[in-house]
Amino acid sequence: MSLFSYLFAPRPKSASIAKERLKIVLAHERAGRDAPDFLPRLQKELLAVVARYVQIDEDMIRVNLGKSGETSLLEINIEITGAKPKDRPVLAG
């Protein structure tokens, strides 16, 4: 790089980088903050139940508490495409 272009090349301002990074991280943190405490535990237990019947990975289940109009909505998404059914359900107990 020539001295000229080194001196005059536009450099991204660090303040705008800071602003973008903050916007992203705070959007993420605010969403997690409003979730009730029991969600992670519920997700874990659901995963355990489903895993007795089909092979499933931890990242294939998502539990969210949202709102649809006046009613609260507990949304459970379990992705099983590609998951193999287990030969024989293993019953707890």
Binding site: K13, S14, A15, S16, A18, K19, L22, K23, L26
Partner: peptide, 16 residues
């Protein structure tokens, strides 16, 4: 430093 783009400006913090 704000004028040089090296520090978050008032409006940036207010917006965030």
């Amino acid at each position: 430093r704000v004028a040089k783009g090296e520090m978050l400006a008032i409006d940036d913090v207010k917006e965030i």
